[in-house]
């Protein structure tokens, strides 16, 4: 019964995974014949000074967006786990960004942030009418902001589910012992959410490796190479410069980083306990 799923997954998941490794040792322009290249692609890519930069940008966006999203998602998750009417009403609106595609979000924000015709300019607030996408540091900040805007709803939903599974009796006991709200948050809620935090962080960080559509539409990697992440680098090398070999090298690196991250986060979760949690992601 598992056969159809196995066939499709092997055909379009595992075979491409091996294929990308094979192609990293090949010359291919995307149309013509594929020829062996030996280790040349690897040498070329690893020597390319733009690689450390792409790795750095990817890392920066990953860490910053994790650092912004995690506390906000956690607190919002706690907030909407409450059963008050107004919180449930707010939660309805919180999820709206989840419905928009990355393409739609990127396009809308691109207009919104336009230094001459965007929201900031229209309101006449100089602070808001900077050249957001025209300056490297600002552009990275904008990417992190939009990523957070888009994905915090999803992660707060995960945290909401986690919070609702914490036994109420723990809070009641804490209450009797006189623990305040902050104390409860740090001594009960957050420790109890350990596995939820790991699940959510895994999804965030592994997911951030493949932010493609958002950055592609928003900045196309610019200004200069300021937001050229590994995923974008792979696309530009492969499908714009027609160098599928070097692009495959980048892809292999992406796969390795993703696997490494997932393993690392599993370790952090502590042995077998996290394994069962991974299975219950």
């Amino acid at each position: 019964m598992a056969l159809p799923a196995v066939l499709v997954f092997v055909g379009f998941g595992i075979v491409p995974l091996l294929g990308v490794l094979a192609l990293s040792f090949a010359n291919w322009n995307g149309i013509g014949a594929i020829t062996a290249a030996g280790g040349r692609n690897w040498v070329a890519v690893l020597k390319d000074p733009s690689l450390p930069h792409a790795v750095w940008v990817t890392f920066l966006i990953m860490v910053l967006s994790w650092a912004v999203q995690t506390p906000i998602s956690l607190l919002l998750g706690v907030f909407i786990a409450g059963h008050q009417r107004y919180r449930e009403a707010l939660a309805v609106l919180y999820f709206l960004p989840l419905l928009l595609s990355s393409a739609a979000i990127a396009i809308a924000y691109k207009s919104l942030l336009d230094p001459n015709f965007g929201l900031g300019a229209g309101l006449g607030i100089p602070l808001l009418s900077q050249n957001w996408l025209g300056e490297g540091k600002l552009a990275i900040g904008v990417v992190v902001y939009i990523v957070s805007w888009q994905f915090i709803p999803f992660h707060s939903l995960i945290y909401q589910g986690g919070v609702r599974q914490i036994p109420r009796s723990m809070y009641e006991a804490a209450e009797i012992d006189g623990a305040g709200r902050m104390r409860q948050l740090f001594s009960i809620t957050i420790p109890q959410l350990k596995y939820t935090i790991i699940t959510s962080s895994t999804l965030m960080t592994v997911g951030s490796l493949t932010f493609f559509d958002l950055i592609f539409i928003l900045t196309a990697g610019g200004p200069g190479n300021a937001t050229r992440t590994l995923a974008l680098d792979m696309y530009i090398r492969g499908f714009q410069a027609d160098l599928m070999g070097p692009a495959s090298v980048i892809a292999v690196l992406l796969v390795l980083v993703g696997l490494g991250l997932a393993l690392l986060l599993r370790r952090l979760g502590g042995g077998s306990a996290s394994e069962s949690q991974m299975e219950g992601a």
Binding site: F9, P16, V20, A251, L254, L261
Partner: peptide, 20 residues
């Protein structure tokens, strides 16, 4: 195998997918 698939950014396999 499926669990491993979760940890892999599958979009990174787009070039061979294109070839297939």
């Amino acid at each position: 195998m499926f669990l491993m698939g979760l940890a892999i950014p599958l979009q990174a396999t787009i070039i061979p997918v294109y070839l297939i």
